[in-house]
Design a protein around this nucleic acid. Structure first.
Lengths: 127, 127
DNA sequence: GTGTGCAGTATACTATTGTATAGCACATAT
DNA sequence: ATATGTGCTATACAATAGTATACTGCACAC
């Protein structure tokens, strides 16, 4: 447990991809497993989208995703940070100000997220 | 509760997309929400991949995804069927034989799944 | 008649996700 | 002095996801 900026507590968690005991029947399954490891859950893609829409502050992000709670937002931000998808910078002390941003690496996710958006858009029409 | 083919019990569940009370800050979030609604969890994409690799039988699919349990496989197959991603056909009675297959509609998911695979593949290299 | 495979269900459990609500320490605005 | 905003944490709880294991009824092979 590390305390920083008077507020934030980071519980360190292993970032390494855990390999299942038995092997998947093809490498594609492993790759999908890896991608899901980074993007799992309801919120991570929405947070990435929010950042990409220009939101940088904790409360700002929270407001842009109406149903998320502080608990989940904190959790997801930490995981995204550990996986190098977003960065967190303290820009001012007392009053503490934090700036979240997408990393360079996060840009590699964009084609995937575009496809998520496209499919959802089309699915609405189909239903 | 409906009993069919002596084995299968289907608990009917609403398929409609539930709209959150508050609105997302942009339509893209809604689309991602919709896509995740269909593909959520650890297993659905792996099942789709397994079917695409030519597996059609329940046990076959289970074997191709080593860590999945029957409980989860049953659950996920039902959800995918409800969302028209896969179909389930009884091909023979006593001994009962079932054939699972991807629907035409499931093909629209392929660009998305390809991106999932690609990103995971690249992510391995980066880590 | 024993073991195997088929297509699952049932029960019980743990872990993770998600909800709800309250609070802190500081600061600025009214 | 009170309310509001910032960036979170803490606690308690409910719901869902996932694990583990056993079992069923039928058919076929040995």
């Amino acid at each position: 447990m590390v305390k920083e900026a008077k507020t934030r507590i980071v519980k360190v968690k292993k970032t390494a991809l855990k390999e299942p005991a038995a092997k998947y029947s093809c490498p594609e399954m492993k790759y999908i497993h890896d991608t899901l490891y980074v993007l799992n859950g309801k919120w991570k893609m929405l947070i990435i989208l929010s950042l990409r829409n220009g939101n940088t502050r904790y409360r700002e992000i929270a407001r842009s995703i109406p149903l998320i709670t502080f608990r989940m937002l904190s959790k997801e931000l930490k995981e995204l940070e550990q996986n190098k998808i977003i960065s967190r910078k303290v820009t001012h002390d007392t009053p503490v100000m934090i700036e979240y941003a997408l990393t360079e690496y996060s840009k590699t996710l964009w084609p995937l997220i575009r496809e998520m958006i496209n499919w959802g858009k089309n699915h609405r029409k189909v239903i």
